[in-house]
């Protein structure tokens, strides 16, 4: 066979092959990671429900009740969060009525594929200090896709199986640099908070498909409610 013809043909075949692989990769990133993440998140939610329905019944007095209650009994030391395991469900009505995602302990890459990740060095849910959570904005189910739509007063509701925690967003999402770990401080000053409190920080990437910046949202604990009293008002539309 003519060697030029062979070279041209082989080269074209390699080009077609590379193009096909690229198309497959785009399909994987845009579509398949979402399919996998949705099923992984559903699995984590199921595990939480399973644990809550079979676990010991919570003592109503042990639920955190912010406020100057003098005779409040000291709650038993809560069990530490297990790395990579879910411990709460987050609801953000602004992101849609059915938006409910599991919150897992830790921010490892593999953990964030299965849900939102709690920065393990930050406060516990509902605790004094800053409870910080990271989530994907794009790929892996796009949990924080609508992050920029958050506005002051929006509810961020969390349920740890015993208590509903209703946080309220305090300002529009804040754009910052990836190294700005000060946004996770127990009292994040850039949010305008003056003194100690029970805060929530959400982080995701900015721009949508990039990694040059981060987008931050801050909230404060507005109300708590034992689960046996039903869903908090923020989830009723």
């Amino acid at each position: 066979m003519d060697p030029v013809r062979l070279i041209v043909r082989t080269f074209s075949e390699i080009c077609v092959t590379v193009g096909t692989v690229i198309v497959l990769f785009v399909t994987y990133v845009l579509f398949w990671t979402g399919v996998r993440a949705d099923s992984a998140m559903d699995g984590e939610l199921d595990r939480l429900q399973q644990r809550w329905s079979t676990g010991p019944v919570a003592d109503p007095k042990s639920t955190a009740e912010p406020g100057p209650r003098a005779e409040r009994p000291k709650p038993p030391a809560p069990e530490p969060y297990e790395d990579g395991k879910p411990f709460a469900v987050m609801y953000i009505p602004r992101f849609g009525e059915g938006w409910a995602k599991p919150v897992l302990e830790g921010t490892a890459t593999g953990t964030l594929k299965k849900g939102l990740g709690h920065y393990s060095a930050t406060a516990r849910l509902g605790g004094s200090g800053n409870f910080a959570v990271a989530g994907h904005r794009r790929t892996y189910g796009d949990p924080f896709k609508d992050f920029p739509k958050l506005r002051s007063g929006d509810a961020v509701v969390l349920n740890d199986g015993r208590t509903w925690f209703t946080y309220r967003i305090d300002r529009r999402p804040y754009r910052t640099l990836p190294a700005d770990v000060g946004v996770l401080d127990p009292v994040p000053e850039k949010a305008g908070y003056q003194g100690p409190g029970r805060y929530l920080t959400l982080t995701t990437c900015e721009p949508e498909w990039g990694h040059s910046h981060r987008l931050i949202a801050w909230a404060h604990l507005d109300a708590t409610r034992p689960v046996e009293h039903g869903k908090p008002g923020a989830l009723h539309r």
Binding site: L112, A134, P178, A179, V181, T203, C205, W209, R214
Partner: peptide
């Protein structure tokens, strides 16, 4: 870059 969602 889609995995970088944390500040640390």
């Amino acid at each position: 870059p889609f995995n970088d969602v944390t500040v640390d």
